[in-house]
Simulated assay, not measured.
Amino acid sequence: MQLPYVYRVTKYDPADRDEHGHYTGSEDTVSDHGEVEASYLQAVAAFAGDSGVDHLAVREPQVPSLAHFGVEPPVDGFGLDGLFPGGPTGFHDGAEVPLEIGLQLVRAMLRDNGAWCRLEAEGAFAVHVGWDQYLYISSSRPCEEALAHTRELGLFPERLDASPYAFEAEEEEQVIQRPGDDDFWADLHRAVVTGQAGILEETYLEGASRWHHLTSDTIDPVRAGLAPRARLAVWPPLSTDIDAVLRALPADGLVEGVWQDDDGNIRNAIAEEDEFPELAARISRAHAAALLSVYAGESVPLCTAVLPDNDGVLRARWRTEPTPGDRDWALRQPQG
């Protein structure tokens, strides 16, 4: 839902922009970790207060995967340490946080610590951070007091039609998104028992995933331990022919290795060609393994799903890339 009042809040004086809107002044594009950063956070608090909001929901959270593109280097824990009672696992889509924790997340994003998300109060307020200390705030109210306070802080709020970082859903989904509901898990159990499926990839944050070994005995414990609203991908069993897996290692490019250690845990690593020797060494000691291409369309899971909330409603906005198995499932669903 697009809120009616959208503002870009920055430390950049509009008078220092050229005819294309590009900033030409002397302000740095990184956080000062001090007074200016504190002003940004005070501005967010002021807009939230004017909007009648004291709690926020984490939406579309992400962390760096292959590369970190922030100006400042990432930090251990991606800036999440100490923010959630249960640790970083509390950082998931739909997590409700008090405004104070929301401000700490905004601080982490301003500092390019690694973690990123949208923070929202449905129908009332939203805030997220873009590149180069650009802050975007949306509200159901004009927030005139917050605007005045933000200017007093030395920042520059500017009205926009929409944030360039607002979530954009597909206008019309080509394939219905399958929920990870009871029917999905019943189908998965059958696929595991018949030997078609063997591992489950859980993407719990954009840029972060973990893998689970599936047997008829482990499916229920795996399901119980998944992060809320995670994206799921079901893959065939790993191969115990380790020599064949190693022979399939490409000469160059990127590849994801997935393997099962002797302790039964599933490990994975995305490697570039100069890291292939280390990846090969790890796989050579594995009980079973597989190599997956990271390039679109080259390695396709059997099927995918997104976890619904406990009431059965699919509130996550992110979607999985439909597979042939997903399309077959969608065709079997009642129309209309």
Results as ranks from 00 to 15, higher is better:
Gln62Cys: 11
Val63Ile: 15
Val63Leu: 15
Pro64Phe: 05
Leu66Thr: 13
Phe69Gly: 07
Phe69His: 10
Glu72His: 03
Val75Asn: 04
Val75Gln: 04
Asp76Ser: 12
Gly77Gln: 07
Leu80Asp: 08
Asp81Asn: 15
Leu83Asp: 02
Leu83His: 04
Gly86Phe: 05
Gly87Tyr: 10
Pro88Val: 12
His92Met: 00
Asp93Asn: 13
Asp93Ile: 06
Gly94Cys: 12
Pro98Asn: 10
Pro98Arg: 06
Leu99Asp: 11
Glu100Phe: 05
Gly102Tyr: 02
Gly102Val: 02
Leu103Arg: 03
Leu103Phe: 12
Gln104Ala: 15
Leu105Gln: 11
Val106Pro: 05
Val106Ile: 15
Val106Asn: 09
Val106Ser: 07
Val106Tyr: 01
Ala108Met: 09
Ala108Asp: 10
Met109Ile: 04
Met109Asp: 03
Leu110Ser: 13
Leu110Ile: 06
Arg111Trp: 05
Asp112Ile: 02
Gly114Ser: 04
Gly114Leu: 09
Gly114Met: 07
Gly114Pro: 04
Ala115Lys: 08
Ala115Ile: 14
Leu119Arg: 01
Glu120Ile: 12
Glu120Arg: 01
Ala121Thr: 08
Ala121Leu: 03
Gly123Phe: 00
Phe125Ser: 06
Phe125Gln: 02
Ala126Pro: 03
Ala126His: 02
Ala126Tyr: 00
Val127Ile: 06
His128Leu: 02
Val129Asp: 00
Gly130Gln: 01
Gly130Pro: 10
Gly130Ser: 02
Trp131Asp: 10
Trp131Met: 05
Asp132Leu: 06
Gln133Asn: 04
Tyr134Arg: 06
Tyr134Val: 00
Tyr134Asn: 10
Ile137Met: 01
Ser138Gly: 05
Ser139Asp: 02
